[in-house]
Write a protein that binds this DNA or RNA. Structure first.
Length: 800
DNA sequence: CATTCCCGCCACCGG
DNA sequence: CCGGTGGCGGGAATG
């Protein structure tokens, strides 16, 4: 009880004796000082604010307007009252119009997202090495003209991504996106260890059952397992090079927002469709004693917080708001639009990783203490206790300190410290070498840079440069916020993985496999179409139900028979979101491209690809103006140019594919063939098989329609389809789920016709079967295979 | 009415 | 004890 600070009830009544409204009034005053305005009806006329108004030249006007606008409304309603209202109204109207044109409704102007943009605009995505960009909260708050409290919200989230780190009171260091990829890797890993994927599944299943009143019991079991191995009180995930930058100051017990942010991100990284609904996220994040503690208020609060976080993440363009429409209506959700994250593992010392890491077990323990025994639910009090202990430990550990910068040597010492360190796989250290090139001061460049590379435009993985140019700070600053849509992926599979399709084995992630057998499937972003409206090429589409990475995801657009009962709406599905990544940092990408890939993953080749291409120009631009956040670079119209070299031969050996993270959207499938026809004819001819057939095989196998090992000859139908179908119209359903952009650029009518049979891939027998979870002593959990669980409900995701 | 989420009170806690 | 932090939830804007 005491753990949490003010319980709701404790909250001190504001303005004793006054009506609850008091606060709001205060609010207004705070924003604009109006000494004596008559309360009631008087419209707070535009009191100019104090002197300086930092922002735009027109800000005054803005202020006026915003101040007036509320009034306007009320006035409008009783306009009859005044005779001269006409004029007034007109004037006001003008103002309003003006307002709309130039400024947004005041509330939006104050949104955290906007504020965050402003904040981010102040610092480069990739700050140059040397000068540390220090951030002074006071200053920033003042300059941005907001209360400091808001800055904390932003900074806390950024901190969770290690984009900033606290140096001392009021001071933060700006790191930009240099650490982002590492952070994401670490987060992904932790997320995997925590079985978030399964948790998500459980939650969904539960909901599902709830709806239909299916087995109550399994429900119970679920809850139990969920509760036991879940609710993790996990501490902040640190990054190996940065853990203590913040020194003593840093140890604050409540890192809740930060932790929450990290968890939230993890959810995206581990779920296959990379779409997470607020509801699910909230439930998972609440974790704790979540039994049926559906505690409504708590849930609400969590949601609120998630919105805060989401706004910041959105500003960072890591996620984007979408809506998932189910039978029950549409729910807010977010889609990951950030960089793809490789499954951890470093290039430099592949084999040692397993050992070097204290052990996943340990990591998990630290992060999720509850994890050990999983068959009974832990009593809340115990949890608390653990928590407390941990906190104490943390304090102690973090004791020493002063904002001293650590060098590599110290780094090691530190690593011994807190569990925090343990939490993060040691991995990064080695990798840091790569980044060091760029410049992070703190990172000590390791002499042995793995394989390579020049920042940015690296050729394909296949041909890493033999030489590694030491850093060039000059290069580093290149910023590439968005690149055009086309992205390519390669799928690396390891033949040895003869697992069934459904097997999920985390352990693989840790195994650095030399990329044996590389099969590259190149999908191109076919955003192409002339979609006029959507500028972001993101029309995504694909999404599989996270719950089932196992089941087939998308049915290739097959002629569908309407037999399927549900009609899917289609979104303009063009690509899978993954494909769309905008590549932001070359370095990061580089980083990834150089590492060894565990089998079963889709590896984004983006950077490589773009580097050679037009991407450059964009990069440069980006570099120049740090602010152009919001605008997505519009996808290149038409097919994205792909060099022949980029297209790798597709050669998929007959084997089973571990489904992890593999996402193929029909679009992508369609795209390949199209591409080949239009642009790459010559290039792909060399491939052993026709890409389309490979893809088909891959898909089918993945789906489980055909046994592994069986190859299906190129399917004429598919090819035809792919050619003929317009990407936008191609819809595809993953299971029964349908994604839809929130603001569909394509009229539904158009979309409708493209119905796909959703049932097509459904397992005959038991659509409802759910894979069960079993915890292994080794700490890894696997999903036992069973029939894939296929949710019956229809889901649609729409973009905002 | 539902969804978003701003605002700022005030508990904490480091210094 | 002060002042920076940041949990938290009311309730205003918006949809």
């Amino acid at each position: 009880l005491e753990g949490k600070k003010g319980k709701i009830t404790l909250r001190r009544p504001r303005a004793p004796g006054l009506n609850p409204k008091a606060p709001s009034k205060k609010r207004f005053q705070g924003a604009e000082i109006q000494p004596d305005c008559q309360p009631l009806t008087t419209p707070p006329k535009p009191k100019e604010i104090l002197p300086a108004d930092p922002w735009t030249p027109t800000s005054n006007l803005k202020m006026l307007i915003s101040a007036a606008s509320p009034e306007i409304r009320s006035r409008e309603q009783r306009r009859e009252l005044s005779n001269n209202a006409r004029e007034v109204l007109q004037a006001k109207h003008c103002l309003q119009v003006y307002e709309y044109e130039k400024s947004q409704p005041s509330r939006k102007e104050k949104s955290l997202g906007l504020l965050c943009h402003k904040f981010l605009a102040r610092y480069p995505d990739y700050p140059s090495t040397a000068e540390n960009n220090y951030i002074c909260l006071d200053e920033v708050a003042e300059e941005l003209n907001v209360e400091r409290r808001r800055i904390y919200d932003i900074v806390n989230v950024l901190e969770s991504l290690h984009m900033v780190s606290r140096l001392a009171k009021n001071r933060y260091a700006w790191h930009g996106r240099h650490n982002l990829s590492k952070t994401l890797q670490a987060l992904k890993k932790v997320g995997e260890e925590n079985k978030y994927t399964q948790q998500i599944q459980m939650i969904k299943k539960r909901e599902y059952e709830h709806e239909f009143d299916l087995d109550g019991e399994s429900n119970e079991e679920m809850a139990r397992s969920f509760g036991s191995n879940e609710h993790s009180e996990m501490s902040f995930v640190e990054l190996p090079g940065m853990e203590f930058r913040a020194a003593s100051v840093n140890s604050r017990k409540d890192k809740s927002l930060r932790v929450m942010s990290q968890k939230f991100v993890m959810l995206f990284l581990v779920s296959t469709p990379q779409i997470v609904s607020l509801e699910v996220a909230a439930k998972i994040l609440i974790g704790e004693d979540q039994l049926e503690d559906l505690d409504k208020s708590k849930f609400k609060t969590k949601i609120r917080r998630l919105y805060d976080i989401a706004n910041v993440l959105s500003s960072l363009e890591l996620i984007k708001k979408v809506h998932v429409t189910e039978e029950r209506g549409r729910k807010p959700a977010f889609k990951w639009t950030g960089p793809d994250v490789l499954p951890s593992v470093q290039g430099s010392c592949p084999p040692s990783i397993l050992e070097s890491i204290p052990s996943k077990e340990q990591c998990s323990k630290n992060l999720f203490p509850s994890r050990g025994k999983q068959n009974f639910t832990r009593h809340p009090s115990l949890i608390k206790l653990v928590k407390t202990i941990e906190n104490d430990r943390r304090k102690i550990q973090s004791a020493p300190t002063s904002p001293v910068k650590m060098s590599a040597s110290t780094d090691q010492n530190l690593s011994a410290l807190p569990s925090k360190m343990a939490q993060v796989p040691a991995i990064a250290k080695h990798q840091s070498a790569l980044e060091s090139n760029q410049s992070s001061p703190e990172v000590v460049p390791k002499p042995e840079p793995p394989c390579v590379a020049a920042p940015s435009q690296q050729p394909a993985l296949a041909q890493p440069p033999a030489v590694c140019p030491p850093s060039h700070s000059s290069v580093s600053p290149v910023i590439l916020p968005h690149t055009p849509a086309g992205v390519s992926y390669a799928i690396y599979l390891h033949p040895s993985q003869a697992h069934t399709v459904t097997t999920y084995s985390p352990s693989f992630m840790l195994q650095p496999l030399p990329c044996a057998n590389v099969t590259g499937i190149k999908s191109i972003n076919s955003k192409v179409l002339n979609k006029t409206t959507t500028e972001e090429g993101d029309n995504q589409v694909t999404t599989d139900d996270p719950t089932k990475s196992l089941t087939a995801k998308e049915g290739p657009p097959i002629k569908s028979e309407t037999s399927s009962q549900r009609c899917l709406k289609r979104s303009q599905a063009l690509q899978e979101n993954n494909l769309i990544k905008k590549c932001r940092s070359d370095e990061e990408s580089l980083d990834t491209s150089l590492t060894f890939f565990p089998s079963g993953y889709l590896i984004p080749l983006t950077q490589c690809t773009h580097g050679n291409k037009a991407g450059f120009s964009n990069k440069e631009k980006a570099g120049i103006c740090s602010l152009q956040h919001t605008t997505y670079s519009s996808p290149v119209a038409g097919v994205i140019p792909v060099t022949a070299s980029e297209l790798k031969a597709v050669n998929i050996p007959a084997f089973q594919i571990t489904p992890l993270n593999i996402m193929l959207s029909p679009t992508s499938i369609a795209a390949a063939p199209v591409l080949s026809n239009s642009c790459l004819n010559s290039s792909n001819t060399s491939s052993a098989q026709n890409p389309s057939s490979s893809v088909l095989n891959f898909t089918l196998q993945h789906i489980g329609l055909i046994p592994a090992g069986v190859q299906v000859p190129a399917n004429p139908v598919l090819q035809n389809m792919s050619v003929s179908l317009q990407p936008e119209n191609v819809s595809y359903s993953s299971e029964n789920m349908n994604l839809q952009e929130d603001k569909p650029s394509v009229p539904k009518e158009l979309q409708e016709p493209q119905t796909v049979t959703e049932n097509f891939f459904r397992t005959p027998g038991g659509p409802n079967t759910v894979s069960s979870l079993s915890a292994n002593s080794d700490g890894t959990d696997r999903i036992s295979q069973g029939t894939p669980y296929i949710p019956q409900r229809k889901l649609e995701v729409s973009e905002d």
